[in-house]
């Protein structure tokens, strides 16, 4: 089950409690275990881990003569720095050929920023609260990025996703997850480096995506199920799995054992697990995100203010939610 669906499964009461000790819950990244824990009880075991990092195209930086070390580490710094960098890209590649950076219009990517400084996009009762003051203020970050003229979505550039835009040389920097690692290396042969996520309001913020094993509350053979989950998430089995499939493990000891930490790029992604937010927020998140995606582009394309767009998004999401009551 996906971390974002976990609260829904819990609300339906369909998950069985799992023995923490047998599952070696202390061996996992804390953030990940917390995502499958309710009221101190464990209901799921994370089987993998994906985080975001800032990918930069080293060849492009070389060509325009910018040292990657000079890239600001905060969004505030980036907003000042990006226009100059875009100008250099235009000079080297021609106007409109390479964009400096891409961003996303998806709550699954934006949530970490939205919740900064106590932002609360979802109320405790599950209702959407996207238009609340702090959330709107936080979303203003994206508008500032867009206004630099150096930031666009991958779709704006005619690509399906950030990884594609980055791999095909349409963008010099992008926030993307470790799943793009193999494809960038083998298919696109991009010469890239992964930097930690920029800081916003003094802190690094990113997202974590994970899938966990759960057990049906009505399972006839809980002992066997527990043994199975413990087995597939054990250090040995996860090492084999993570190595063959090429995903990041949910246990730091596995990451060490298969030497992921030795690769500086993968290590950056692994470290992001500690500062990032798990993609999870109550059991109405899918509905709210659908509504968010529906209206956010208008806010970014200067048709309306963020506040206006989010008021519309709230209204539509909450109407859908009350239909389920």
């Amino acid at each position: 089950m996906d971390s974002s669906l976990y609260p829904w499964f819990i609300s339906q009461g369909v998950l069985a409690q799992l023995p923490k000790k047998q599952m070696q819950s202390t061996k996992f990244y804390k953030n990940l275990i917390a995502a499958f824990t309710s009221k101190g009880k464990l209901y799921g075991v994370p089987k993998d881990n994906s985080t975001l990092g800032l990918l930069i195209n080293k060849d492009m930086f070389k060509k325009v003569g910018v040292d990657p070390k000079t890239i600001p580490t905060s969004y505030a710094g980036l907003i000042k720095w990006l226009p100059g960098f875009q100008a250099k890209l235009n000079k080297a590649y021609g106007k409109g050929k390479v964009t400096a950076m891409t961003y996303d219009q998806d709550m699954a990517r934006n949530l970490a920023i939205m919740i900064a400084k106590g932002g609360k996009p979802v109320k405790n009762n599950g209702k959407a609260n996207l238009a609340s003051a702090q959330v709107v203020k936080n979303l203003g970050l994206y508008k500032k990025l867009v206004n630099t003229g150096a930031v666009a979505t991958a779709k704006d550039l005619g690509s399906g996703d950030n990884g594609t835009a980055f791999g095909t040389g349409k963008v010099a920097m992008t926030e993307e997850g470790n799943w793009t690692y193999q494809v960038q290396k083998k298919q696109y042969k991009t010469n890239f480096e992964v930097l930690p996520m920029p800081t916003y309001q003094g802190k690094q913020r990113g997202m974590i995506f994970t899938v966990g094993w759960g057990e049906n509350a009505e399972s006839k053979n809980k002992k066997l199920d527990n043994a199975w989950i413990a087995y597939v998430t054990s250090k040995k089995e996860m090492s084999v799995w993570a190595k063959t499939v090429g995903v990041m493990p949910s246990r730091p000891d596995v990451a060490k054992a298969i030497k992921l930490t030795k690769d500086s790029n993968l290590d950056t992604w692994l470290k992001a697990t500690n500062y990032s937010t798990v993609w999870q927020e109550g059991n109405t998140l899918t509905t709210i995100n659908t509504s968010y995606q529906n209206f956010i582009s208008d806010a970014m394309n200067v048709k309306m203010t963020i506040k206006q767009a989010m008021i519309k998004a709230d209204k539509q999401a909450n109407a859908a939610i009350s239909n389920s009551k």
Binding site: T168, Q187, Y188
Partner: peptide
């Protein structure tokens, strides 16, 4: 075609 060529538009 290889992936890069397909998605490069």
């Amino acid at each position: 075609k290889p992936l890069k060529e397909i998605v490069s538009g």
